[in-house]
Simulated assay, not measured.
Amino acid sequence: MSDAISFEEPWARTHQFDPPALFDELRAKRPLARMEYPDGHIGWIVSSYELARSVLSDLRFSHSTEVGHFPVTHRGQVMPNHPRIPGMFIHMDPPDHTHYRRMLTGEFTARRAQLLAPRAEAVAAEQIEVLKRLGPGADLVKNFAKPLSLRVLSEFVGLPYDQVHRYGHAPTLLHDTDADPQEVVAAMGEAAAFFAEVIADRRADPRDDLISRLIAGGELSDEELGNMVTLLLFAGYETTESALAVGVFALLHHQDQLKALRAEPAKLDGAIEELLRYLSVNQYDTYRTAREDVELAGETVREGDSVTVSLPAANRDPAKFGCPAALDIDRETSGHVAFGFGIHQCLGQNLARVELRAGFSALLRAFPDLDLAVAFEDVPLRLKGSVFAVKSLPVTW
């Protein structure tokens, strides 16, 4: 159709922190716009805040691999329908989704996450010492954001961090559109084999970790457990690491906001929410498939149509957030959709906030003169793929 935009148009950021200006035009004229996917399928893309929440909360839109039309992955490959993968509940609809997710809900409450705060703070302090030993020019991604996110999540789930070489690189490769597909498959296989070993060990020798508690529940097979561990790691590690690293990059670029935060550290929680809204690092793979014909924004979305929801565009909607292109740590950010919305809203968001708070707090205390060690324009970015990220962030102090 002549009015359908190309699938490629919404993903190339026009500035280090900004989604394409195309979204401003779409939001004003056709917030539900036709989009041509790489396999030729004509679906839709949502750019407004209200429509994003509407689609993501409407059970007439499916996220199941069994009924969905998933015309593309973040590597540009067509993904055929396939039977549901036991335990991989992110790609299920109720009641299967509900069955698996309820087993984890109590593990990720705000109260439970706060119990992990001291450990997150201790890990952050240890990584601060690593940065100090390396000295100015150290890479904040490699030596702080990655290990903080991965260590805290691994310990909580029950993955021995002293064997991180067997699983830690798999999520990074999966989210990297430039990675060799064969290398990705190999890394995924190695991680799955390691998870199976850990699960077998916990069945024989339970510990105080999530895997052991899920085993004690008695409802899950080894296959289901392995896939749930995979989902938790792959959904929770890269996103939190990227939110921390890109958040630091954004603050270092917006020195007025960094100065205000240093002057009033009590504003940190609000600053984190604003950074989550402003950056929306979960930028790419939020899509649904219509299970039936749905009337939406004056259009008829036909059964089988794909609907991509742009979280970055929704979080920059001026109808919800005044002057949305500005980073403002004093902004009222309640309701932002950086963690999604509806039944698939990020399960681990409370844990992510604990890790982000620990990371930002440690950096602000340890390095009152933290700055970039390279020019702003020379910070390498990963602009495409499911997670917006900085590949490295050399810093000085």
Rank of each mutant, 00 (worst) to 15 (best):
E241P: 12
S242L: 05
A243V: 11
L244D: 04
L244C: 05
A245E: 01
A245C: 09
A245Y: 03
A245F: 02
G247I: 01
V248F: 01
V248R: 02
V248S: 02
F249E: 03
F249H: 06
F249R: 01
A250G: 08
A250D: 12
L251K: 01
L251Y: 01
L251N: 01
L252D: 06
L252N: 10
L252K: 08
H253M: 13
H253N: 14
H253W: 14
H254G: 11
H254Y: 09
Q255K: 15
Q255D: 13
Q255I: 11
D256G: 15
D256A: 12
Q257K: 10
L258M: 11
L258R: 05
L258W: 01
K259Y: 12
K259A: 15
A260K: 10
L261M: 11
L261H: 01
L261D: 06
R262K: 13
R262A: 11
A263I: 11
A263M: 07
A263L: 11
A263S: 13
A263R: 09
E264R: 14
E264W: 14
E264K: 12
P265D: 07
P265V: 02
P265A: 03
P265T: 02
A266M: 09
K267C: 11
L268R: 05
D269Y: 08
G270A: 07
G270L: 07
G270N: 11
G270D: 04
G270K: 04
A271D: 01
A271S: 09
A271Y: 02
I272N: 00
I272G: 00
I272F: 11
L275T: 06
L276E: 08
L276M: 14
L276N: 03
R277H: 12
Y278H: 14
L279K: 07
L279D: 03
L279R: 05
S280P: 04
S280W: 02
S280L: 06
S280V: 08
S280G: 13
V281A: 06
V281R: 02
N282V: 15
N282P: 07
Y284S: 15
D285R: 14
D285T: 14
D285H: 12
